[in-house]
């Protein structure tokens, strides 16, 4: 049977397009509106569009914060969802899920560097990771964000917009991508398919 992907409704606006992207890959995908909705899922995806503070408040209200910390299945955070994996965020100065150490910071403004970082940018992997199987170094993915995680110990790919930041992270079976694979054409679909193939621990 196709893997069942639970997509966390963190109040953001992009969970519909994330679900469509998994369905295009033949996966069964369902939106989870509370922690109960994660039961039985083989994979969990934490998408996110919006701000860290309201998103964390919503995750706590719906019991997701505890459930995500003890999920036991592969987890993929997308965009804000990746940022929420870290310990804290400078956006609203809030404590986030703390699955990864580190603090998310605002992208620093610089001459000719527009924030939000919006558009297709090259992603370079750091070492090898199953998430980027079959995706050549330098492949362009679609980004839309104003905050980013620094290149920490869990960084598996980087991108540069003024500064260089973590474009993807991995710790065990917890993954995060700062770009939007659901909107990154063929390479994005490949990445989501790779995520579906990560073995359940």
């Amino acid at each position: 049977m196709a893997p069942a992907v639970a997509i966390v409704d963190a109040g953001g606006a992009n969970f519909a397009s994330v679900r469509c992207a998994f369905e295009r890959l033949g996966a069964r995908a369902a939106i989870a509106s509370d922690a109960d909705g994660l039961r039985g899922a083989d994979r969990i995806v934490l998408p996110g569009v919006g701000a860290a503070g309201p998103a964390m408040a919503l995750l706590r209200d719906r019991g997701f914060d505890q459930a995500l910390r003890s999920a036991g299945v592969p987890l993929l955070g997308i965009c804000l969802g990746m940022q929420l994996l870290f310990a804290t965020s400078a956006e609203g100065d809030v404590a986030t899920l703390g699955l990864l150490p580190g603090r998310v910071e605002a992208l620093p403004p610089a001459p000719g560097v527009r924030v939000p970082h919006m558009g297709w940018n090259a992603v370079a992997t750091v070492g090898s990771t199953p998430l980027f199987d079959g995706i050549p170094p330098g492949t362009q993915m679609y980004f839309v964000h104003g905050y980013a995680a620094p290149q920490g110990v869990d960084c598996i790919a980087v991108a540069t917009h003024g500064a260089t930041f973590a474009a993807a992270v991995q710790r065990g079976t917890t993954f995060g991508v700062q770009f939007h694979p659901e909107r990154s054409a063929g390479p994005g679909a490949r990445l989501l398919d790779n995520f579906l193939r990560v073995p359940v621990p």
């Binding site: 469509c20 369905e23 295009r24 679609y142 939007h180 909107r183 054409a185």
Partner: peptide
Amino acid sequence: VGRVARDLDIP
């Protein structure tokens, strides 16, 4: 809009 968004994989 939903029909297009479901089908497309670009923004």
